[in-house]
Design a protein around this nucleic acid. Structure first.
Length: 766
RNA sequence: UCGGGGAUCGUCUAAUGGCAGGACUGGAGACUCUGAAUCUCCCUAUCUAGGUUCGAAUCCUAGUCCCCGAACCA
């Protein structure tokens, strides 16, 4: 099952490869019940539940209800409703953080017993002050060294309700000088005399997120705890708490991905709430809102949202998704599922001069161009067409109606405009047309082609309905670009236009709330679930059809997106790694003397010497390697360019291989015993196993082969296997050299020099 | 100021030292009883500079830019 692939599935695949049974894979979607879900949450829901489906694991819906001040049971219900509507099932796994309060309390006591937590009795301000700032060490609380007994006693009293809000907190005892601010004795519990929506007044102390969340995961057996990027710094504390408590199996791990951001909207609960409270929108489910409820009311389907989540992918890049992608997914989904109907939004009357008065032709028109089912549409002497479909002075390329022009009325007859009747104000009041009585169904008897096809309704049979035309809520691609400009000033004044007198064909005039249609040549519409009355639907436009005619006057359809303006841009004078090394040398004469030695005696470049003298272990490693090999320069180059890349952040001291072995490897390369590419492979094994290079080369069978026949054989095999590539190369596609090199080198397992292989390939490809 | 992340077509995302691919957008055309849909073709990208390598988006080095973190919020 690899329908989806991203950095999270890579991690899970690796975990499974290391023995984690796929059925044990457990994720969770952990909303706080303090607001409505929006499309950003939908991405997270699709990710977490999708992963569970993909791997045959499970996904929990868990309410992270640790702050009763902001939460409400109403949200608990709306969130469940939204997740279910999106098409996901949590089975038995509906959980609440509040269900674990007792267990968390015990765990906190356990931390106190281990000397890893203490009750602090300072004010918020004092605690904040002691945490100092970025780059500055914090100071310890005067209460940090309270005895275990006193801490237990105080904590029990906190729970018992003996103290007022804010008088005491429980903190983890970690490190007030920790470079990660999150680790400076974080708060674990605070006192809140507030009624909780589930536990009532049973508790007056509530756990903080950083303490509670990892425990919730661990208690539920979550394996992959996926959250958004802003929690990256919190991961260290997540791991600390679980480690401090100990004994978890499986041990959950936190992974972070980029939350969804979309053009032309805002996503923060606070800002959405403001739109609701200001009355800018009609509520959380206003069809213009990016909330799940809003999207649903707008007429968007869960399938479209899931397709969108799939399309935007999962990564760590902080990005903004083009609104057009969402629109594409909505159109694509609705295109496939909707019946077609005719509705004239802005009617213009058409009288047919030569149509038999009072005669009504009952036409059968298919619901979909590709379907068999049809409905009846009455045709009579007076019709409505769209006002926009008539032009007195048509521009070049106009296919619609104009004086003297002929068009097709969809599914009906061809008509020609004979006369324009004006009202007193000079505006076009109605059109007098003639109809080709031999064109029933839309085809001319003489076979002449008519380009334009219009939608229409019969005046006498049409129903009048109210139609709401929605558009993007904001007119600026990034309404939050400038922090000095209130985002509400960026609202799109035309995000809602109501057309109360639209004329609709009788077959859909009595449709049920929730029914969706494509109004031909207009867009996709849904009978609003709230405002429709029986027999009197009110329609919402979900989205308009693409219109390549309307945008023909060359506007670049690509959105112009303003970059977010920074509030204060002060120059960064972060210490660079080079500066850190230089400072270390200034402090430690042993490092400096090694540096001097590398430059003075070994004649290495300043930059290589700088890197190699980073720490004492590395220096010892390099010296041993040079001693074994004999010449500094090649060893230095191999250390810098190969070893540093292989070992990444692992300290040299913890490597299993030593400098002497490394020197041997470099010697073997130079003596021709092993090719460079094979040697890189051997190096990887060496640092992990600590075994001699010669042994590894032997064991892996990657020793260099002088035999030219071996190379030719491999080249032949590659050519025979990929004849079309050979042809393309011979046709001039030079890029394929890399392809052949890769295939051949892999086949040879690096037993020959790249140079030699290239030469062989080139000579055979002549 | 310290720590943690991130930079690939206009947008989103692949490529885990071996043909920079896909989708959206945009452009051109075909088809069409929806100027829709569909189909075909096309434009456009590896942050910069050095280095290692037969070969670098990927490894090393230096630099640039962006995001997050100092709530008794989550």
């Amino acid at each position: 099952m690899s329908e989806r692939s991203n950095f999270i599935t890579d991690i899970i695949d690796a975990d499974i490869a290391n023995g984690l049974p796929a059925s044990q894979i457990a994720t969770r979607f952990p909303p706080e019940p303090n607001g409505f879900l929006h499309i950003g949450h939908a991405k997270s829901i699709c990710l977490n539940f999708g992963l569970a489906l993909q791997y045959g694991g499970r996904c929990h819906l868990r309410f992270d209800d640790t702050n009763p001040a902001k939460e409400d049971i109403a949200y608990v219900e709306s969130i469940q409703n939204d997740v279910r509507w999106l098409g996901f099932d949590w089975g038995d796994h509906l959980h609440f953080a509040s269900d674990y309060f007792e267990r968390m309390f015990e765990i906190a006591n356990g931390l106190i017993d281990k000397g890893l937590a203490y009750v602090d009795s300072q004010s918020v301000d004092e605690i904040r002050e002691q945490r100092a700032g970025f780059g500055k060490p914090g100071t310890n609380s005067p209460f940090r060294e309270r005895s275990i007994e006193e801490n237990r006693d105080l904590f029990a009293k906190m729970r018992a309700g003996d103290f007022e809000d804010g008088s005491h907190v429980l903190r983890a005892k970690i490190d007030m000088t920790h470079p990660n601010m999150v680790m400076r004795d974080p708060l674990l519990y605070r006192i809140r005399h507030i009624t909780h929506h589930r536990t009532g007044d049973a508790w007056c102390i509530y756990p903080m997120y950083d303490f509670a969340h990892c425990l919730e995961d661990a208690i539920e057996g979550i394996t992959h705890s996926i959250c958004t990027l802003e929690f990256e710094s919190a991961r260290e504390l997540y791991d600390w708490v679980l480690d401090a408590v100990g004994g978890w199996d499986p041990l959950p791990h936190q992974y972070e991905f980029a939350r969804l951001k979309l053009d032309y909207t805002v996503m923060s609960k606070r800002k959405l709430l403001r739109l609701v409270e200001d009355g800018t929108v009609s509520g959380w489910d206003d069809p213009r809102m990016p909330t799940i409820a809003g999207l649903r009311r707008r007429g968007v389907t869960p399938e479209a949202i899931r397709a969108f989540a799939e399309m935007v992918g999962v990564a760590k890049n902080n990005t903004v998704v083009d609104y057009g992608k969402l629109e594409y997914c909505i159109r694509q989904d609705l295109e496939a599922r909707t019946q077609r109907a005719m509705c004239v939004l802005n009617p213009l009357k058409v009288e047919l001069r030569n149509w038999p008065k009072d005669f009504v032709d009952k036409l059968q028109v298919p619901w979909r161009p590709d379907g068999d089912e049809s409905r009846e549409i009455p045709f009579s002497s007076t019709l409505f067409i769209e006002r926009d479909d008539f032009s007195e002075e048509p521009p070049k390329g106009w296919r619609r109606l104009a004086p003297g022009a002929e068009v097709r009325l969809m599914g009906a007859y061809l008509i020609r405009c004979q006369e324009v009747v004006r009202g007193d104000d000079g505006a076009v009041e109605r059109l007098i047309c003639t109809v080709d009585l031999h064109s029933r169904g839309g085809q001319a008897a003489d076979g002449r082609k008519v380009k334009g096809t219009l939608h229409w309704v019969s005046e006498a049979h049409a129903a009048t309905v109210s139609v709401r035309l929605y558009d993007r809520l904001f007119s600026a691609a990034n309404p939050e670009a400038d922090p000095d400009v209130d985002f509400v000033t960026q609202l799109n004044p035309n995000s809602l236009k109501t057309q109360p007198d639209a004329k609709i064909e009788p077959a859909v005039a009595t449709c049920d709330p929730g029914e969706r249609f494509q109004f031909v040549r207009q867009g996709y519409f849904i009978a609003d679930t709230n405002d429709s009355k029986p027999g009197a639907p009110v329609f919402n436009r979900v989205i308009g059809l693409r219109d390549s005619w309307a945008k023909a006057p060359k506007t670049d359809g690509r959105p112009t997106r303003k970059k977010a303006k920074k509030r204060d841009d002060k120059p960064s004078n972060k210490r660079t790694r080079a500066e850190v090394r230089s400072a270390a040398r200034a402090e430690n004469p042993a490092l400096q003397s090694a540096m001097d030695h590398f430059v003075g005696e070994w004649k290495l470049s300043e930059s290589d010497a700088d890197l190699l003298s980073a720490d004492l272990d590395l220096i010892a490693f390099v010296k041993a390697a040079v001693a074994s090999h004999g010449t500094p320069a090649p060893v230095a180059s191999w250390v810098v360019n190969q070893l540093l890349g292989v070992i990444k952040d692992t300290p040299v001291a913890s490597l299993l291989c030593n400098g002497t072995q490394f020197g041997q490897l470099v010697s073997l390369v130079e003596a021709g015993g092993v090719s460079k590419s094979a040697a890189r492979n051997v190096l990887g094994h060496m640092v992990e196993s600590g075994r001699d290079p010669a042994v590894l080369i032997d064991e892996l069978g990657v020793g260099r082969q002088e035999d030219a026949g071996l190379v030719d054989e491999a080249v032949d095999a590659v050519f025979t296997e990929h004849p079309s590539e050979v042809e393309r190369f011979l046709g001039g596609d030079q890029k394929l050299m890399g392809f052949f090199m890769g295939k051949t080198m892999r086949a040879l397992r690096g037993r020959a020099d790249g140079q030699a292989v290239r030469t062989a390939l080139l000579s055979r490809l002549k």
